[in-house]
């Protein structure tokens, strides 16, 4: 199901950045704060919550199935408690949590977060990449954050796709009509690099997802050609 509502728990700089980046793609963004003094502040509507809450109020207010939650409390222990509370209350809710380091990232995953962003490790990875591989870092950054016309997309193989039931090996995916196919994700939800031994033996099935890089026009042509389209499968999204 398409996600239309973003629930952000925590009123801080992370929340502000998330709101800035998501406001164009989400119809409803709700920011929750634990500090009642914050209410009425800022450029967006704030609501209060506390960790002992029963969550029914939130459930009444938004459709949980079409929502995605961001746990960005700065206090690690409270953030973990919030995540486990949300998971206990809503089994199907997609939860993304921010952690300060790998240790708390593991705890957040155990608490039920679908995806954890370890801030220190992510920042240090980016710094190391900037220093070590400045060109590739710049290119990947521009592809990922769409700072250039080059885009990365995920295409779901449909039932009518011309590649359905074909062997991956039999197609030269690397330079296909202006796009480059990087990897394929099949039913076990693990993405495989296009040249890996597993991927080569794989027979394309309906539901497989191809990760491709290319210009928008070429991606659209590719979608038409293989009779498949861009897709995000949220129901099975978990790492």
């Amino acid at each position: 199901m398409r996600k239309t509502t973003a629930l952000i728990f925590g009123h801080n700089k992370y929340a502000q950045e998330i709101v800035t980046n998501l406001q164009d793609s989400y119809t409803k963004i709700k920011v929750y704060t634990m500090d009642e003094n914050d209410l009425g502040e800022g450029a967006y509507e704030l609501e209060s919550f506390d960790l002992s809450d029963e969550w029914q109020l939130i459930e009444k207010d938004v459709d949980i199935n079409s929502s995605i939650a961001f746990c960005v409390l700065e206090d690690t222990s409270k953030n973990i408690f919030l995540t486990i509370s949300l998971r206990a209350a809503f089994k199907e809710l997609s939860i993304i949590a921010v952690s300060s380091n790998n240790e708390s990232a593991n705890k957040l995953k155990m608490a039920g977060a679908n995806k954890v962003i370890p801030l220190v490790e992510t920042t240090s990875d980016i710094i190391a990449n900037m220093l070590e591989k400045p060109i590739s870092n710049k290119v990947l950054h521009s592809i990922l954050y769409e700072e250039s016309a080059l885009k990365i997309a995920q295409i779901r193989i449909s039932n009518e796709s011309k590649f359905k039931d074909e062997k991956l090996k039999s197609i030269d995916w690397t330079r296909y009509n202006g796009i480059i196919v990087l990897s394929v994700m099949h039913e076990n939800m693990k993405s495989e690099f296009i040249y890996s031994s597993k991927a080569k033996r794989h027979i394309i099935k309906e539901g497989d997802v191809l990760v491709i890089v290319g210009y928008e026009r070429d991606i659209q042509e590719f979608e038409k050609l293989i009779r498949s389209e861009r897709y995000v499968n949220w129901s099975n999204w978990s790492w």
Binding site: I18, N21, I68, F70, I117, L144, A153, W237
Partner: peptide, 14 residues
């Protein structure tokens, strides 16, 4: 974090 979440919720596999 803002950029990552944007990309993460839009194209998780990519």
């Amino acid at each position: 974090i803002g950029l990552i979440t944007k990309e993460l919720v839009g194209k998780p596999v990519a």
